[in-house]
């Protein structure tokens, strides 16, 4: 058994102590004003995601698994740059960090029409998306194309890495994305051509089956999902889509928790990143809900599961 990343795992274990706990979030919900909220957040010494990423990358510069968790940001940035280019705007304010591909590299690729500067996993998609948006100006179709390509790239890289944790991580993300897309498409009566582009498919939820179920209507889709291992998600989707989103995020945290027993390996590092994402999402939920005047019960219901 390997002993890789012993030092990084120890750092991460120490840093887990400064993640927000349930009582920290309750204090944040009960804060009197924005200033008190800011003081609470600053007192936890909560680093930003790019800072956390930099730290993880320093410890595991050669890890391919770590790269995979940023694919979604890379593909989002691809959409942002293409849309900004078509609408004649600067993409900088739509770019998400951290990402594997530098903002300037993405812009340069489209400015010079040279996609070779992009990594393998995104190159072909960038070419296809560029052709699609410049010929059809259909932003929705381009979004679907890029989102599906992102999932496929993640699946391929996870498979190549041979890491079971990464396979489960990617599978979970793909399943949640496919269910959400299929549900929306069934509501909007989208045709097979659109579904072929928008649904990725995974070992547990095969692409063709989801497409057939979606074409049969929303009730048919929910009934199909009800007979899979994701029946719980299907039920939540029917009752309350917000609960569905929360459950998807909670399932990711539950997966991250499986690496809490590991003293070595890349998994604890990835789990810490997932935990940090969930923490930031929770802080955002509290801030937005408070701005909107939501009551404490509603805010608490919407909070994602905590890693600590």
């Amino acid at each position: 058994m390997g002993t890789q990343y012993a030092s990084a795992v120890a750092v991460v274990r120490t840093m887990e102590n400064s993640l927000f706990t349930q009582s920290d979030l309750e204090r944040l919900i009960n804060a009197r004003d924005r200033k008190e909220s800011e003081t609470l957040i600053n007192s936890k010494n909560a680093g930003t995601l790019p800072e956390v990423w930099e730290m993880l990358r320093t410890f595991a510069p050669d890890s391919k698994e770590l790269e995979i968790i940023l694919y979604r940001n890379d593909f989002h940035n691809l959409k942002a740059v293409l849309k900004a280019m078509v609408s004649g705007r600067e993409p900088d304010s739509y770019i998400i960090q951290p990402s594997n591909i530098k903002n300037d590299t993405l812009k340069e690729a489209f400015r010079t029409k040279d996609m070779d500067v992009l990594p393998d996993y995104i190159r072909e998609t960038a070419t296809q998306a560029y052709e699609l948006i410049t010929t059809t100006l259909d932003g929705q179709l381009m979004d679907s194309l890029i989102d599906t390509a992102c999932m496929k790239a993640m699946q391929e890289s996870a498979e190549k890495s041979g890491n079971d944790f990464m396979r489960k991580y990617v599978n979970l993300i793909t399943v949640c994305a496919d269910i959400k897309t299929a549900y929306r498409c069934s509501k909007m009566n989208k045709n097979r051509d659109f579904l072929e582009i928008s649904i990725c498919g995974s070992p547990e939820l095969d692409k063709e089956s989801i497409i057939r179920a979606t074409l049969g209507g929303t009730e048919n889709l929910l009934s199909f999902l009800g007979n899979t291992i994701y029946a719980e998600l299907s039920g939540l989707l029917k009752e309350n889509p917000a609960e569905f989103e929360k459950r998807c995020d909670d399932m990711l945290i539950e997966l991250a928790e499986t690496s809490r027993l590991q003293a070595f390996g890349i998994e604890p590092l990835i789990s810490y990143y997932i935990a940090k994402e969930a923490e930031i999402k929770n802080i955002r939920i509290i801030s937005v809900c408070r701005e909107c005047g939501a009551d404490k019960v509603t805010i608490t219901e919407r909070l994602r599961k905590l890693y600590v």
């Binding site: 002993t3 012993a6 030092s7 795992v9 120890a10 750092v11 410890f59």
Partner: peptide, 17 residues
């Protein structure tokens, strides 16, 4: 050496340990 690696990781964040 292995424990030293892990220990250095902890001390880099929390020298009191």
């Amino acid at each position: 050496g292995l424990v030293g690696e892990a220990a250095a990781g902890v001390v880099s964040v929390d020298p009191d340990k």
